[in-house]
Write a protein that binds this DNA or RNA. Structure first.
Length: 596
RNA sequence: GGUCCCGUAGCUCAGCUGGAUAGAGCAACAGCCUUCUAAGCUGUGGGCCAUUGGUUCGAAUCCAAUCGGGGUCACCA
């Protein structure tokens, strides 16, 4: 039982005895006392003044007096208006710290101990262009949320649904066929996904030019978009692909192969991975039977032109086509099929999470609603982890217009900056070349990942390429640096921190107590972060802890402390701090170096 | 236009399941390295929490309206 629960029940008991308020459950609102006031926890007494028939001050006094008698851990209290601030004893916090420091992975529950299995889909790239900053946010977010959910003992299956077919894929194929002259990643020296992306852009250039020519010749823009020769060729190619034409399939396989090689490199740099890959070329036909099923259940209806629809106007959504009049699938048909397939394959999953940008909020509302109407009980377990777009100062990124921040360029740039900065500071004597490479990689990626994950996923975020991502202040490298500092002290300590037995008579200083109190919060932070699918909660907490440690570091000597019991206690204290920083950062997919 | 999301310091963000004088970082200015790594610490200035009204003992937080920004409303994905 944690402290708050214990205190809450004591308080509700006290309130009950004093004022005869029996209806008060254990969910007494207890908050951390603000810095400006003395105390550890605060009870807001306004809600009880009626029953107490007394002023807020008097009510606080009454409850406070009673608490002192009932709970030996509470040693004093003060009342400011309707706020009852009370302090827990030195011994209490010290023994609390003992149990924290004895746990090797404090706050983290054993793997798969919750008995819940969850599937989380993220990344889901198109195979016609390289990854950009928007994908980076998706990947980091998905990976981090999965990792955080694992700390709660959930069995998380990470899946990637690759969008590897369709008209957009054919666009780069056609452009390569027409203008590529057999260019390959090897012959061009380009990374596979970038090479394919080059032809995607090429397609768009030619397409736009053709439209212009047609419009100049007197055609309407709408017709021109349909009549453009390159577009007609692309549509023919899609038909051939669907007819399994060998030449087309071979080309498709070759070019997709290039893209996968490129993605593999990017994923590795990002540090993300998957337990299972899905390819849309395998799943795009799924869902058609479901439509038939829905038709017979009268969830769907057939229109005069033969298309099949669902009417969701009663749900404040619109009428939605679920199957084209020519019998082919639309996007939502596939998603219906894929969802059902997944729950068949993994019947135990209790949550299906889709990490997809908020531009698709509407799509997922419709998808989940349809699943519900089809009678799948698990529909309510489907969750759209919707995140905001990454915007540039001039607005949205657009692949075709080249206004994107390329993922590989960005990552390489971060690592290069990490190298420069580190060299300027000149603190890396005695590092081997491998160690340096690892260090630059870790710091550069740490800066990028932290920059992205510290902001609430739901909110859109701004990235200005002209202003490089910082390495000072509220950043990944600051946290990494602090960790390295702690490790440096621990290396110099001529004993084993694991063998230290904490003395019972230590008198905690302010900063020491603050550190313990903040460490104590870690499990709750992980839980909250997991439940809200929000890595920013962990990110901001780790920053707070790190900042507090640096204050402690400035005020309290560790190795230079002359009193040995205090010195050993502080070693233990900074050791648990380092562990929490490390585990918290791992939740964000960020590694922390031992030295930097 | 319907609908959904957002508006907090010059900039980037916390705080939003209602609680005390709204917090960080960056940028600016002023201090701190014969003492465990200065990627650090301390201090100063900077805010009608978009506006107005409502609910409440109490509102940045909840509700409504207005203004401003964005997403979405395809037999595209």
């Amino acid at each position: 039982m944690n402290i708050e629960h214990l205190l809450s029940s004591t308080i509700s008991q006290v309130i009950n005895e004093l004022f005869g308020l029996s209806g008060i459950p254990n969910d007494i609102i207890l908050q951390k006392t603000k810095k400006e006031f003395e105390g550890d926890f605060t009870l807001v007494t306004f809600p009880y003044i009626k029953a107490a028939k007394a002023t807020p001050e008097k009510t606080g006094e009454l409850i406070g007096e009673q608490l002192l008698k009932n709970n030996p851990s509470i040693i004093k209290f003060n009342v400011v208006k309707g706020f009852l601030n009370f302090s827990l004893s030195n011994d209490f916090w010290l023994s609390e710290f003992k149990s924290i420091s004895n746990e090797s992975d404090y706050g983290i529950k054993p793997a798969k101990s919750s008995g819940k299995q969850m599937m989380l889909e993220y990344s889901s790239p198109n195979t016609n262009k390289p990854l950009h900053l928007g994908h980076v946010r998706n990947n980091l977010l998905g990976y981090s949320v999965a990792t955080i959910m694992k700390t709660q003992g959930h069995d998380v299956i990470k899946v990637n649904l690759v969008n590897d077919r369709g008209i957009h894929i054919c666009k780069s194929m056609i452009a390569w066929k027409l203008f590529g002259n057999g260019e390959t990643p090897k012959s061009s020296g380009l990374k596979g996904d970038h090479l394919v992306g080059k032809y995607y852009v090429e397609f768009d250039k030619v397409y736009k030019k053709e439209i212009q020519t047609l419009v100049d010749g007197g055609m309407s823009k709408e017709d021109a978009e349909k009549q453009s020769p390159i577009m007609l060729l692309t549509q023919q190619m899609l038909l051939k692909w669907e007819a399994n034409d060998k030449e087309t399939i071979d080309l498709w396989k070759m070019m997709n192969g290039w893209v996968y090689e490129g993605f593999e490199v990017s994923y590795k740099k990002l540090g993300v991975d998957f337990d299972k890959m899905y390819y849309e070329s395998n799943t795009y036909l799924l869902g058609k039977e479901i439509v038939q099923e829905g038709l017979s259940k009268n969830v769907f209806y057939k229109k005069e032109n033969g298309s099949i629809c669902i009417d969701l106007t009663a749900e404040k959504l619109d009428e939605k086509v679920v199957l084209r009049s020519d019998g082919t699938s639309v996007y939502i048909t596939q998603d219906l099929g894929t969802a059902i397939e997944r729950f068949k394959e993994f019947p135990a999953i209790s949550r299906m999470i889709y990490t997809v940008g908020n531009e698709q909020d509407y799509h997922f509302k419709v998808l989940f609603k349809i699943l519900e109407k089809l009678g799948y009980a698990w529909a309510k377990e489907c969750y759209h982890l919707s995140y905001g777009m990454v915007e540039l100062p001039e607005g949205k990124m657009k692949s075709r217009e080249g206004t994107v921040v390329d993922a590989d360029d960005l990552m390489d740039g971060m690592v290069a900056t990490a190298k420069e900065t580190t060299e300027e500071l000149g603190k890396v004597e005695g590092f081997t070349k491998d160690e340096l490479d690892y260090l630059y990689q870790t710091i550069g990626m740490g800066a990028l990942k932290y920059f992205i994950l510290k902001v609430d996923p739901k909110k859109k975020m701004l990235f200005d390429p002209k202003e490089s991502i910082d390495f000072n202040g509220h950043t990944g490298p600051f946290i990494q640096y602090t960790h390295a500092r702690i490790k440096s002290i621990l290396r110099k300590f001529e004993g084993k921190s694991s063998e230290i037995i904490i003395d019972d008579n230590i008198n905690l200083l302010d900063k020491e107590k603050e550190l313990i109190k903040l460490q104590y919060d870690f499990p709750k932070i992980l839980e909250e972060s997991s439940n809200s699918y929000n890595p920013a909660v962990v990110a901001n907490y780790i920053y707070e802890l790190t900042k507090l440690f640096n204050q402690f570091y400035n005020e309290c000597p560790v190795l230079k402390e002359e009193n040995n019991t205090i010195k050993e206690f502080r070693i233990k204290l900074i050791n648990t701090t380092a562990n929490i920083i490390k585990n918290g950062m791992l939740c964000l997919g960020i590694d922390v170096p031992e030295r930097m």
